[in-house]
């Protein structure tokens, strides 16, 4: 197992959490966009820490994705009990969800629309949709309050869970953390964290990883495009433990199709 990858995920997640704690002080969930802009323009070093938070978060997702692919290639599933594999797999949708709520709680053009869409997607789930929405979103009634709570709580859960997993083996070395901090800082100095002003346009694009779903939502009913289709790979990853070949084939097909939808959405 390439160690740098697994430690990279941990390090970037830790950096994202720490920088998140820093910018959570000037952030107000009561007026999310105003305080986000305040962090960006008024608070000293605010834009820097926001960018650091943004890029370390994006990097966590990318590294975790690579980490998962690597685990699949190296057939790591078979060497551990099924429940341990399932819990590890859960970290992928959890990180994705944390990243997504991160967009929602900044409440700019992208975040506002993303929140509204997520709420309606949750509601499209039969039977439990209403409760899911109440637990995770409810942005139309309660603003970004609930996504904000989920953003914070879920990070704690994931960090605790994966931290326990990794730190059981060895503590994250300070040197590794330093190196990843340098990479995240360099990224945040090259590009600013995205922030889109509300405007009267006829096209709004969601977070980059959501563009494929956004494209599909134009053609299919919300439940199929926004819930069933994006949960397929997670199901495949769970199933990988028992039927590795079928799961791998399905995952590849899904990744190919999502790649196409993502490109279509990005080119709009």
């Amino acid at each position: 197992m390439t160690k740098w990858l697994s430690w990279g995920v941990t390090a970037t997640l830790l950096i994202a959490t720490l920088s998140g704690i820093i910018i959570s002080y000037p952030y107000h969930e009561e007026h999310p966009l105003i305080s986000t802009v305040g962090i960006e323009t008024v608070v000293p070093f605010g834009d820097f820490f926001r960018a650091l938070h943004y890029f370390s978060g994006q990097l966590t997702l990318l590294l975790l994705w690579m980490h998962t692919v690597e685990a699949l290639i190296k057939r790591r599933a078979q060497s551990r009990p099924w429940w341990s594999w399932s819990i590890l797999i859960l970290s992928l949708p959890a990180i994705l969800f944390i990243l997504f709520t991160g967009y929602v709680i900044r409440d700019d053009e992208t975040g506002f629309s993303a929140g509204r869409i997520a709420e309606h997607l949750a509601l499209s789930i039969p039977w439990v949709g209403k409760y899911m929405n109440h637990l995770f979103f409810l942005v139309s009634q309660d603003g970004v309050h609930r996504p904000w709570l989920i953003h914070v709580y879920l990070t704690g859960l994931v960090l605790g869970g994966t931290g326990l997993w990794h730190f059981r083996l060895r503590l994250l070395s300070l040197l590794d953390l330093g190196c990843w901090a340098t990479i995240c800082t360099a990224l945040s100095l090259v590009w600013p964290a995205s922030l889109v002003a509300p405007q009267e346009t006829t096209l709004v694009k969601g977070p980059w990883f959501f563009l494929g779903v956004q494209e599909l939502l134009r053609y299919l009913p919300p439940f199929w495009a926004g819930i069933a289709y994006p949960s397929l790979p997670v199901v495949c990853l769970f199933g990988y433990y028992w039927r590795p070949r079928l799961a791998t084939l399905s995952l590849l097909l899904w990744a190919l199709s999502y790649g196409i939808f993502l490109l279509m959405g990005a080119c709009r």
Partner: peptide, 25 residues
């Protein structure tokens, strides 16, 4: 202005003189 599809804010397009939802058109 809430779109009945997924709740995005619908915008007015003066060129075509219709309302368009920016999320899914």
């Amino acid at each position: 202005r809430t779109c009945p599809h997924l709740g995005c804010t619908v915008n007015y397009d003066p060129e075509e003189n219709i309302f368009i939802c920016p999320c899914h058109q």
